[in-house]
């Protein structure tokens, strides 16, 4: 604080509180909407205070069927989402750390070419090459499978870059010392590199978990079987039924459940999340 200006400080607090309210408003409305029976929406405006149907809606959505044409319960889609998010996050970290290790600590022909090939994936988001990627996955008969959900999204230039940056800061003396002590490449990787990159891995994991959980277009395209639906994409199937028949209460409950895990991760692991966010943008 440079000078005392109580009014300005009060003003700051007001703006911040307004911002928080504006940001939280849709969640509030969604929560309230999920506690009213579906018919409430046909009569007029969504009520602004909780109704008494919350328990029934949430139980139905979580355990019997999400409704609106999606016949599987939310818990099953939650498991699907979790499998996909974990597979993407762990898979990306595993293959990126290995390739960064190869690029930084070995010299071999075509090293830079490999680096550029990996770099190119930065320029090719799924949304841009959607039709041919779908074809490849269909030809490999990976539609409606966990492998098909996760594998095509696993290659990541960002993670490779991050690990490369981190490895480049490791002093050469450390490598020399390890080699003099008789450590081979595997030993060095396991006992020195992995422990040194622990916080980087954790930060990256937080970001990639959110990325994987929030995948939308890809699961939407390659899953036609309800049992492989992920939570985020199921929303699209749910809002696609005819306008009059939409049960908004179950959609709102599903939406809240779908955003809950990544939001909890962000709030609970805030430090790692911020670190991951800043690191991956370098």
């Amino acid at each position: 604080m440079i000078e005392r200006r109580p009014w300005l400080t009060l003003f700051s607090h007001c703006i911040l509180i307004l911002g928080i309210i504006a940001v939280a408003l849709p969640i509030w409305v969604a929560l309230v909407a999920s506690t009213h029976p579906a018919e409430a929406f046909k009569q007029g405006v969504i009520p602004l205070w909780f109704g008494d149907q919350g328990w029934i809606t949430w139980k139905k959505v979580l355990f019997s069927a999400a409704g609106n044409g999606v016949d599987v319960p939310v818990w099953l889609m939650m498991i699907n989402s979790l499998v996909m998010a974990l597979a993407i996050a762990l898979g990306k970290i595993a293959i990126s750390i290995l390739s960064a290790y190869a690029i930084v600590f070995f010299r071999f022909p075509l090293r830079m070419l490999c680096f550029w090939i990996i770099f190119m994936t930065l320029m090719l988001p799924v949304e841009v090459r959607i039709v041919p990627t779908y074809k490849v996955v269909a030809d490999l008969s990976l539609l409606n499978s966990y492998t098909g959900l996760a594998l095509p999204l696993i290659a990541s230039a960002t993670a490779t870059f991050l690990f490369r940056q981190c490895f480049l800061t490791i002093p050469g003396e450390l490598v020399e010392a390890a080699r003099i002590d008789g450590a081979g490449p595997w030993r060095f990787f396991k006992d020195i590199l992995l422990p040194l990159s622990r916080t980087n891995i954790a930060a990256l994991f937080v970001i990639l978990f959110i990325y994987g959980w929030n995948q939308y277009l890809w699961p939407l395209l390659i899953t036609t079987d309800d049992h492989y639906y992920t939570l985020v994409m199921s929303i699209k199937r749910m809002v696609s039924v005819a306008e009059g028949d939409i049960a908004w209460n179950s959609i709102m409950a599903t939406t809240i459940l779908a955003m809950l895990p990544p939001v909890l991760v962000v709030v609970g692991m805030q430090k790692l999340f911020v670190k991951g966010l800043v690191d991956t943008e370098k």
Binding site: L16, G19, I20, V23, I210, W213, N214, Y216, V232, M233, I235, K236, T255, A258, M259, P262, V263, V265, V266, V267, Q270, F273, L277
Partner: peptide, 11 residues
């Protein structure tokens, strides 16, 4: 203020 980052665009 930071939690909406975690919400999927579709949601």
């Amino acid at each position: 203020l930071i939690w909406p980052y975690a919400v999927a665009p579709a949601l």
